[in-house]
Design a protein around this nucleic acid. Structure first.
Lengths: 342, 342
DNA sequence: CTGCCGGGAGAAAGCGCTTTCTGGAAGCGC
DNA sequence: GCGCTTCCAGAAAGCGCTTTCTCCCGGCAG
């Protein structure tokens, strides 16, 4: 902001012919100010189009009305949907949200935490964070720890290995396991998994849940049944192409996110492979658009918007001293048309 | 933030055994500080995990590193994709983005502008704003005008009737007209339009462009060829149902946004109507997912990410005094499988 | 050897608020 | 009617920084 004339509380006070203190009190309503003076102040503020300087306010008082939210990519439907819940709760509580996209760069995540700390955000939300990387975890903790000591609240969506903070955890393991069982029930026996990078806890959890459930049924998932690729539509697309190229007797493909499944679906179509007639496909997340695909995608539904809402509520509610809370969110299998009964 | 111990510059100065002024200078690098003292300050800051208080900084100096972005709904792929561009440019310039969702409530839009003004955001971006409503325009201008006078920058994505600010304007009219001509070339003569609320300038522009191009070809678009509905997937779904229920002679449907088209596509499928065999469908925006639909959607492509980037650049670049700039963005027809040749 | 100039470091004045603290004018009981 | 509590409004002290302004010191020309 360039230093131009800005209406200040002093201007208001002068116009209303009262002291600064009175003007402040009148505008904040709380403490007692006579009705005459109050009206005069309000009128003056209105007339001058006065807007309190949030920085001065934050400095003087101790109230902040901003929270910081860090995610990988706002344009990913998974985050966008969670963000919707976050924004709703923020709106209800008159909070301003500072949103940052790391574009999946752990370094940036830490840089943003630092910036948010400088802004004295009253809370920081990490959405879908969680890298399986010791050095990164330490660096993050080094930022977060002084922040919390200073009274900042922290909440996380998804599991973190070492961070001891409030979190909202979708039940990735159980959801993936349930999905595996559902697919087994439909008669499938030969599976492949399109996975994202294994440094993400989310990927690891879903993979493990899926694999374990198969193992329980006496079916092993070999290492080369898992194709690792980017956590994006294109990643899913590439992985599916690879799978189809060296295609064996796989009857069902599990993409660890719906976004990847979408790419996979198109890859199949491009290769002239019909889903579900030639091969079945399932995803995870239940982002809004998957029911509009053809075929509608079988997936594991996460209450994404609620994930965001819950995280925001955790972040708002004061939690100093108490031990960290964990809110588990259900992950329910939704069978649609993309999986065939064998 | 609750008033807890917070490391301040004074703590750093004391630890480094220098004055506040020196500490400040050392940390900001600009002015001259002897190497010995500078290193001592840096070391102290590091040791104490010092983070400058952005509020104090903003108050004392005049620099802000935050911009405000207001959109209807972060979870809408249209905004989410634009937001991606915004976030990228923000990241490159070390800016923090305060993102607000109005959930399509004009009142909230104004309330958020006010909050952003209080935060002394260095710029405010309005994405996809633009209601055809005089009273609302006035109220918005009443917030924006003092903000700009105070040195704030404003930029808008999409057309505003009266607001004289920098803007990035997709060529909605021309794009819709081109689409109409492309559809005519493919042999279509009986059209219907699934429109969003007409108080949005975007809807009006696209509708007008489409209608005018048809008129040029001697084809009239009657009032009841246009079905007005919500600007969402469900809006498109409902509109398509209505259309299918009462009209059977239409060969091609134009949904004014891809999101609506997605809903329409599913509505058709549910009604047992094949796209494009029984009816053709076209959208507008080219949000990422539409190429993955079956059939892939014919649409008018907007460079969404670039829209966001451009808007952010406009907002960053100083524009006091100069007249408002307008960046036009192309809207190109992309023919895919959802439209049949007759 | 004296006088100046310049660079590096400290003192201090705010930035625009909130919030004690203080003081004056009513209002009350006795 | 006097001292007491209340209530209201003003004065003033910061919040944590940046940024003059000032001062001190060494180095250089005269």
């Amino acid at each position: 902001m360039t230093g131009r004339p800005h209406v200040t509380l002093e201007d208001v006070a002068r116009t209303a012919q009262v002291s600064l203190a009175t003007a402040s009190r009148a505008l904040n309503g709380a403490t007692s100010v006579g009705p005459t003076l109050r009206d005069r102040v309000l009128a003056a503020a209105e007339e001058l189009a006065y807007t309190p300087n949030a920085h001065a306010r934050a400095l003087a008082g101790s109230s902040h009305q901003t929270v910081g939210v860090i995610c990988h990519d706002v344009s990913d439907p998974y985050f966008a949907t969670i963000a919707r819940g976050v924004m709703r709760v923020a709106g209800e509580n008159d909070l301003l949200v500072m949103l940052a996209s790391t574009f999946r760069d752990p370094q940036k995540e830490i840089a943003y935490v630092s910036m948010l700390r400088a802004q004295r955000a009253s809370a920081i939300l990490l959405i879908g964070s969680g890298f399986e990387d010791r050095a990164w975890e330490r660096a993050l903790a080094a930022e977060l720890e002084p922040y919390r000591r200073g009274g900042g609240q922290v909440a996380v969506v998804s599991r973190h290995r070492s961070l001891r903070v409030d979190s909202v955890q979708p039940d990735n393991r159980a959801g993936a396991a349930d999905l595996a069982r559902a697919l087994l029930d439909l008669g499938h026996r030969r599976f492949a998994v399109l996975a994202g990078p294994r440094r993400l806890t989310t990927v690891v959890d879903r993979l493990d849940g899926f694999r374990d459930a198969l193992a329980d049924a006496g079916i092993a998932l070999a290492d080369d049944d898992v194709i690792e690729s980017g956590f994006t539509r294109d990643g899913g697309h590439a992985a599916m192409r690879e799978l189809l190229a060296r295609r064996r007797d796989v009857t069902c493909v599990f993409a660890v996110t719906d976004v990847m499944a979408i790419g996979a679906l198109t890859a199949a179509r491009e290769a002239g492979v019909s889903v579900p007639d030639d091969i079945s496909l399932a995803g995870f997340d239940d982002i809004p658009v998957v029911r509009d695909l053809t075929p509608a995608l079988t997936t594991v539904a996460l209450p994404l918007e609620q994930l965001g809402e819950q995280a925001m509520r955790l972040a708002i509610r004061d939690n100093r001293g108490k031990r960290s809370r964990v809110v588990r969110m259900p992950a329910d299998v939704v069978v649609r048309d993309s999986v065939a009964r064998l």
